[in-house]
Nucleic acid binder design. Structure first.
Lengths: 192, 192
DNA sequence: CGCCCATCCTAGCAACGCTAGGAATCCTAC
DNA sequence: GTAGGATTCCTAGCGTTGCTAGGATGGGCG
């Protein structure tokens, strides 16, 4: 067991390389370009080593998605705490969310379009996921009024998610994004 | 040219068979199960005939999506005209939309997740697509107030789209769907 | 009747995710 | 220091995918 730690460390390092390679490739050329062969070449190992770390390609995408949830939670939290006031926080979180989706489309896809294995809306969901949702709860709470904050947060989130997806795929012209965001906030979370 | 009409007719018929087979297979087993080989077997022709009708699998999915937009437009219109009153129409259209997405997940995926080739939000978009959007415009108009009806319709649509996707993938517990829908309507389109 | 053109199928290509089985390497124990 | 054993890793290959080339087949026309 003398060298046990080193090997474990090296293994963890290599696993991180796989995830990073997958993410970079996906962000550069889309998930279709992320093949197990290219991944293997990228980390300078043969294909089968991937399977000693992950059960398959889907698991690798899930790992990338998990990273994404961490970063999303941070981004939302940063946005919220950077400003003060109920309406400013709302706007900041909303903008941070849609910015995140637009700037990292492949990552966002891994998180929300693929990777269905990740548990959501349950106690055993990843911490980062709950942390992200908590940010929504935080900014939405003050304007919830008689409605359940949880429900409002979910609906707010869904609205942003829909906007992000439809705009990114060209189904809604991106140029009016700001106006839609403003409208969504003004109506979903009106001043009380 | 004596038999020209018959052959054209038969060709069109076979094309329809392909689209129907693709759709049924997708709805029964998901799009992953829709392979060109299975499609060919289903219509009792060999693989290459598919490519004499469509440029590839993506084009077949787009054709299925086009059917979906037709049906969605009809469903929305039916829902809207079945009731009277501003708020009732809003609720009816919203419910019809999310019902459509939940009951035909594969079709909905073809329309919104795949098939990016279809032009949206432009004059040369399919008629059915514009017709569907027109239904949103119709029910949203009376509550637009000072906001542009087009923007509100888009945002409303995005909200429903987000709800549909997040609920269907288990990211939001489906059981609270009604409450979210009510909340979305009450806030996005409040009584004026 | 015989040619000819369109239609359709067989066969195959490259690439995919994934896996079996043997080679090579490193650690351990004597 | 060296033999043995276990672990790590690679080569090779399987089955399937979307898609295509090229030859057979059969109906329509002169």
């Amino acid at each position: 067991m003398a060298t046990g730690n080193r090997r474990e460390r090296e293994r963890a390092q290599r696993e991180q390389m796989i995830v990073r390679a997958a993410r970079e490739l996906a962000e550069a050329e889309g998930w279709d370009a992320v093949t197990t062969r290219r991944l293997a070449a990228e980390i300078e190992y043969s294909q089968p080593v991937l399977y000693s770390h992950f059960s398959g390609k889907a698991a690798i995408m899930t790992a990338v998605a998990a990273e994404g949830f961490e970063e999303l939670a941070v981004a939302l939290r940063t946005a919220r705490t950077a400003v003060s006031g109920v309406r400013a926080s709302l706007a900041a979180v909303a903008r941070a969310y849609t910015d995140f989706a637009r700037e990292r489309p492949a990552l966002y896809d891994a998180m929300f379009t693929h990777a269905v294995e990740l548990r959501f809306a349950s106690p055993d969901a990843p911490d980062a996921l709950q942390a992200g949702f908590a940010e929504f709860l935080e900014v939405v709470g003050p304007v919830a009024g008689d409605d359940a904050p949880g429900l409002l947060a979910e609906t707010f989130w869904a609205g942003l998610h829909g906007l992000a997806l439809l705009e990114r795929s060209g189904r809604l012209p991106e140029q009016a994004h700001d106006e839609r965001l403003t409208l969504l906030i003004a109506r979903l979370a009106p001043p009380r």
